[in-house]
Design a binder for these strands. Structure first.
Lengths: 340, 340
DNA sequence: CTGAAAGCGCTTACAG
DNA sequence: CTGAAAGCGCTTACAG
């Protein structure tokens, strides 16, 4: 391995000062065009790259964003939730487009994550992504805000907290899909998914669900809401519980696609046909949803748009401009798991 | 926002020198236990974090790995290949376990990527991931090697090149699944996927496929191999081409799950039943594979293991130790798309 | 066990 | 348009 060239080496070869090299390499208009070209040619020849550590140290910015992905700690070793994986993909792209590097890091909600990347100057700002018990989070988010850390998060809006969030209009999504289910002629609907402020997204979806029920003059029955968090397995178990409860139901609204897929598995094992006997709908529109049998009717959250909004908002924040919390419009995706 | 504390602030408060602070914070045994604790307490109170740019600059290492993901440029804006997304997930986890940060970056094969991250000292080493025209790559890989860059790549081994690669035994995988297809009673097999050194993984799978054919005394018919690269759409088109060619076939071996899924769509549109009239098998075992209809028989590449091997090998390289190219054993996953 | 000092490789006022 | 110099915040010989 050759020794790495520094700006001094280039300066020496070009017969100019190191300052001029630095300027030329950053296309400063303060430098003579001919000199600049000469310097850049030498830099290329020497395979010179600016040392990011040095330049970041000096300029106190890193052109890097850190993405903190919070994982369900119960879900220790299996695959990442496909929805977040998809978000990760779109955020990566959005960063690349803006010329930012992306540092990806998994976190447990319990960790000391709230004061790491930006404080250590490795990143100019943070994107927070992931489900998790929101109540546990809240305190740390407040702390982040107080420290003046630049960050945005994916998720439901939080009252009384000046956080910048990008999220889906979960209430509206939950309402629309429930309306669709009802319009298909089903009227004994169960909801699979937690409904508490610990999981605000699910809670909002549930509230939308209830609203649609009420507007259709259907009763909201507490025992028809069964807790389930995040995973296919949780959906499977919740559906089994529902079946065992002997309550009558002809439709399942799941708080996520993964839960819906687990519920479908439970129904199929019990010989219940979808959608003839029981309709199933999900939420997210992960890639898998179009390949289930029958294909899953669901609510699409546009991850591409979400990734772009997240990155754009964060960059605004870093630039000292103001941004606002934005909600993405959910979009009904009708396939075969609910009615014709 | 409070001013960020530096090691000098801590030194001042603790009544020691800045050198001692630096030592204490890195748990150097050279420092008195009581002093160390005092310093660490103050650091915590001040919310002090070591400035990574400064420490990296000084120590010339970053504890960061860069993951370069090469994308099929034809596939400009759609989702990332689910297989690579899954690899990304497992690499992220593996890095976290080793205490390394992960910088993720999308690249076009044509870019000047081969001399960026490590040379700019943002990362200690690189992981290269992605399909792409391998012939175009080769030259850059040679260059990387010459520069002494630490890197490992996911993919087929390359003859005559001293690269560290982690890959699947594609030949063996292609052979085994073809044997399975034949064992199910099919004997007019088509192969959907490119078969040239531009896509070495697919090529190896095809060679394994041919080997199995030959061992079963079945003829290898060139026109039964149809080019297709990476996407579901490519698989769809290739299958249509096969159907239009009027050749008789009773099984499709696809070079990847995505291609297989596209092929299934084409068959279904033509009213051909799977697996009764035509069997379909894939390669990769992406998450979607178990949800297709019928569920896809395929070859699993263990992405979790792959991610760990990739990271471990790279860290060995960075540490100056030797590593070797490793092949992961493919594993047959039998579902319903091929025989009972 | 501790401190004074050098230096990692840049960027950026400042002076010309 | 260019150069000499300071300094970003650490780590690490060196000396004690």
């Amino acid at each position: 391995m050759k020794e790495k060239a520094t700006s001094f080496d280039i300066a020496y070869q070009a017969g100019v000062s190191q300052s001029t090299v630095s300027r030329a390499l950053r296309n400063s208009p303060l430098v003579n065009a001919a000199t600049r070209e000469k310097i850049q040619a030498i830099a290329k020849e020497l395979n010179y790259k600016v040392d990011k550590n040095a330049s970041n140290l000096r300029s106190q910015q890193s052109d890097t964003i850190a993405l903190l992905l919070f994982e369900d700690p119960t879900n220790d070793d299996s695959a990442i939730n496909p929805f977040f994986l998809s978000m990760l993909g779109s955020i990566t792209r959005a960063c690349a487009q803006k010329g930012y590097d992306l540092l990806v890091s998994f976190q447990q909600a319990s960790n000391d994550w709230h004061a790491d990347f930006e404080d250590s100057n490795k990143a100019d700002g943070l994107i927070l992504l992931g489900y998790g018990d929101f109540v546990d989070f809240e305190e740390k988010l407040v702390q982040l805000t107080e420290q003046g850390t630049h960050f945005v998060r994916w998720g439901a809006e939080v009252e009384n907290l000046p956080l910048v969030s990008i999220g889906c209009d979960n209430f509206q999504g939950g309402k629309e899909i429930t309306e669709h289910v009802i319009a298909q002629g089903y009227n004994k609907l169960a909801f699979l998914g937690s409904a508490s402020s610990h999981a605000p997204e699910f809670f909002e979806r549930y509230k939308g669900h209830c609203q649609a029920l009420t507007e259709a003059n259907l009763a909201v029955i507490d025992s028809m809401q069964i807790n389930a968090l995040y995973t296919e397995d949780a959906g499977y178990k919740a559906a089994c519980k529902l079946i065992e409860s002997k309550q009558e139901f002809d439709a399942i609204c799941a708080a996520s696609d993964l839960i819906a897929i687990g519920a479908m598995r439970a129904l199929q094992e019990h010989g219940i046909s979808i959608p003839e006997q029981v309709a199933v709908v999900g939420f997210d529109d992960i890639a898998i949803a179009s390949f289930t049998f029958p294909p899953l009717t669901t609510v699409k959250q546009d991850t591409k748009l979400a990734g772009e909004l997240l990155v754009d908002s964060l960059l605004d924040l870093i630039a000292g401009e103001s941004t606002k919390t934005t909600q993405i419009k959910p979009e009904l995706v009708i396939r075969k798991s609910c009615g014709s």
